[in-house]
């Protein structure tokens, strides 16, 4: 089982690395495509954002794709199992992923020795961006990020921080501490395996502050105090939270940050290269579905993102955050 898995993914890696040169002309003509149902693969369990997004947009993709659309969940290993499974599928254009591509794909490569590369995946559109939020329970004494920094500067051990190990949030924490010259190794960092537990710990006051994706805090907005959001534009959900870029400029360090989550439709680069006709058809179906006014209304009603950024902007955002994570890979490994 293992041997088979690794050998196939290694083969696919080599194939992808060699690019189109190696790829023999495949009998994949667009004339009959699509003639079978399309599967949306979600590398997470049911009930999360990606799952909800996939299920909500599925009927509209179906409408524009012209074939039934089914959603399949394949969670595990921080999306690594789903990613490996996806790369093993034929490039026939009958499977597409809905994924938190950033940060999960780069993280699995950097911290879990995944047998694929960040560039093996190609973004169609990443409408949902969830920024890391620094927050504390309303019972905590902090009223601004300044309070937290002052106390940390006085004694790095005085504030406990709840966070997910090997996450975009951790990179952001590291950047913030580096900027302020605070020794992170002396801080009390408490690790949680999942955004949910990290939020519960923040909300319940088990930790003094938490760094975790802001969106999940929406239902419990009244119980937390947002202190800082890692972004360069105002957060719609937490408009009162100051921006990390402003904070960095005011404090005199580089305003760098990584996006907490970049979610949306993802295919393999290999599929795009080998079956460009099919890729175009799939791409257009997803674009039309995303822009469909009915779809926009339906998704908005479920608090799901609907923006169309397109492939170019989405890939750029994905690769930018991946390279930032690569740059700070050492920070990720010392949780």
């Amino acid at each position: 089982m293992t041997v088979r898995c690794t050998s196939i993914s290694r083969r696919s890696v080599i194939a992808a690395a060699a690019g189109t040169a190696l790829a023999a002309p495949l009998p994949l003509r667009a004339a009959t495509y699509p003639e079978r149902p399309l599967t949306i693969l979600v590398p997470f369990a049911t009930g999360g954002y990606n799952d909800r997004y996939a299920r909500a947009i599925a009927p509209f993709v179906q409408k524009h794709f012209g074939q039934p659309v089914v959603v399949q969940n394949r969670p595990g290993g921080g999306t690594m199992l789903g990613n490996m499974f996806y790369l093993q599928q034929p490039d026939d254009g009958y499977m597409v992923m809905v994924h938190s591509a950033g940060p999960f794909i780069p993280l699995s490569v950097l911290t879990r020795n995944a047998q694929y590369k960040v560039e093996d995946f190609w973004m169609i559109n990443l409408p949902s961006r969830d920024a890391t939020l620094v927050a504390c329970a309303t019972s905590k004494p902090f009223t601004s990020i300044g309070d937290v920094i002052t106390q940390l500067k006085r004694d790095p051990r005085s504030v406990s921080v709840g966070i997910q190990p090997a996450s975009a949030d951790l990179v952001n924490l590291a950047l913030l501490m580096q900027g302020h010259g605070i020794d992170r190794s002396r801080m009390r960092v408490v690790t949680y395996d999942g955004g949910g537990p990290a939020r519960t710990a923040t909300m319940g006051g088990h930790v003094d502050i938490g760094l975790v994706g802001g969106e999940g805090f929406l239902p419990v907005k009244d119980r937390i105090r947002p202190l800082l959001v890692f972004s360069n534009e105002k957060n719609e959900d937490f408009p009162e939270a100051p921006l990390s870029t402003d904070h960095a400029k005011a404090s005199g360090f580089a305003p760098e940050y990584v996006d907490g989550s970049q979610r949306g439709f993802v295919v393999s680069r290999r599929f795009r290269d080998r079956a460009p006709d099919r890729y175009q058809i799939m791409f257009q179906a997803i674009e039309r579905a995303t822009k469909d006014p009915e779809c926009v209304a339906a998704l908005k009603a479920q608090q799901l993102a609907t923006t169309w950024y397109g492939a170019e902007a989405s890939n750029e955002a994905y690769l930018r955050s991946a390279s930032l994570m690569e740059k700070y890979v050492d920070l990720l490994k010392q949780a």
Binding site: T46, A56, M203, P219, D222, A301, Q302
Partner: peptide, 28 residues
Amino acid sequence: ALGIPGGGATAILLAAFAMHNVVGGPRF
């Protein structure tokens, strides 16, 4: 009361809330 899914079952209930355009949690 808190909108926290304790396990798979309540996560699905929350997803059902979301499907009906209801956000679970204290405000609900």
